[in-house]
Design a protein around this nucleic acid. Structure first.
Lengths: 208, 208
DNA sequence: ATTAAATGTTTACGGTGTAAACATAATTCT
DNA sequence: AGAATTATGTTTACACCGTAAACATTTAAT
């Protein structure tokens, strides 16, 4: 008879504190729209003492690094779903993936920034790089198909990915940080404007 | 008889503390390769008590915001020099400006990140936006000339700038944050690879 | 010269990250 | 099953942080 359903036992031990702490951190990212909260805030929200987290993480920085890593897992799924939603039309899939990238960035702005600029990722280097690489590969594999199908020019795959990723990512960052705030007010605006990016990328990448 | 040359008077009043604090902050950014230092560190390096800064700045966040703004002033000059160095050859100027963007980002990585993602810029909103806009316009005016001279397709200038800026900026951010660390080890590598960006942008933007 | 304003220092406060000492629950060994 | 061990919590402690308030000194205005 596992304790199953009822959780509010208020037992000394928690059950799954690492996961609870990560969830709490994600909650704080969304609710405070920043990453400036303290590890004591995280612990409070998780319902444990302010030092409990140290049994599972090296410290505040490592929690944030793990949350950044988790972000890449979700992100990869976003990209994957967008791409698979378009079936065989690779050019449509390409556009869909760009839209997904931007929508993810704009709907999780703080998390997105944490993912791409977390200073402390070194604490979980291997895991982090693997998660980030999986997202990267999601984009790269589509570019590869476009090249192999003859729809993109035959350039080295790494070059194609660099060009594509840079363009989408820069746009996302600039929108997120308010550098296009004159013309872009919300995610739908951003997606609309981003079609320029897609068009220009395709102009540059497609067969002449 | 102004006190002129001799500065080490160790007087109670400082002379030009705001400027000294900004310099100290820039020094800490370079030496610690982070922005995690405290306002007390800044004050110490400036040679004043830890609360002195509050006579000139609202707090730590405002100092960083001002430093971010200063960064855009320097950045604009970088872009301007690069462009003017190429005289009448607009396409060469275009490439030179992209190279300058990337070199600035990579030689002042922490400052660059601060400029583009500083959360506290609202504290000096107007000044910040003006400084950032000046950099933006430096790129935009070159794109405009390229369009008017018939070398770029006749698209709205704002669209051209969005496409160009996104691409360069995204590349800079991704390199800076180690997402191309397999292939790009230093600034020269980055500049070399960035020529792909230039090429692809030109592919997309030039007259057919 | 006196006063007022500007600009510095000292002191004080609650909050922070994290290490160490302590407490309890879960697991392993006999 | 009972004891010992290990895992995982809590409490306490500490140096440091940002910043406000009280105080000091220098400069500028009257």
């Amino acid at each position: 008879m596992k304790k199953s359903s009822i959780k509010k036992k208020k037992s000394y031990h928690h059950g799954n504190l690492p996961e609870t702490l990560i969830k709490a951190t994600l909650e704080l990212i969304e609710s405070t729209r920043s990453t400036a909260f303290s590890i004591r805030d995280i612990s409070k929200l998780a319902g444990v003492s302010h030092a409990a987290a140290y049994r599972h993480f090296a410290g505040r920085d490592e929690i944030l690094a793990v949350v950044a890593e988790r972000g890449f897992v979700t992100f990869k799924d976003y990209l994957k779903v967008a791409r698979e939603g378009e079936g065989k039309n690779l050019l449509e899939a390409f556009r869909a993936q760009i839209e997904a990238y931007i929508r993810f960035a704009l709907s999780h702005p703080i998390h997105f920034r944490l993912m791409f600029s977390n200073e402390a990722r070194g604490l979980i280097q291997g895991r982090f790089e693997q998660a980030a690489a999986a997202s990267f590969l999601e984009m790269q594999s589509l570019a590869l198909e476009l090249i192999e199908s003859g729809q993109f020019r035959k350039i080295p795959i790494q070059q194609a990915t660099t060009v594509i990723w840079s363009s989408i990512h820069g746009f996302s960052e600039l929108v997120l940080n308010g550098f296009f705030s004159d013309s872009i007010k919300d995610a739908d605006d951003a997606v609309k404007v981003s079609q320029l990016l897609s068009d220009n990328l395709l102009n540059g990448l497609c067969q002449k």
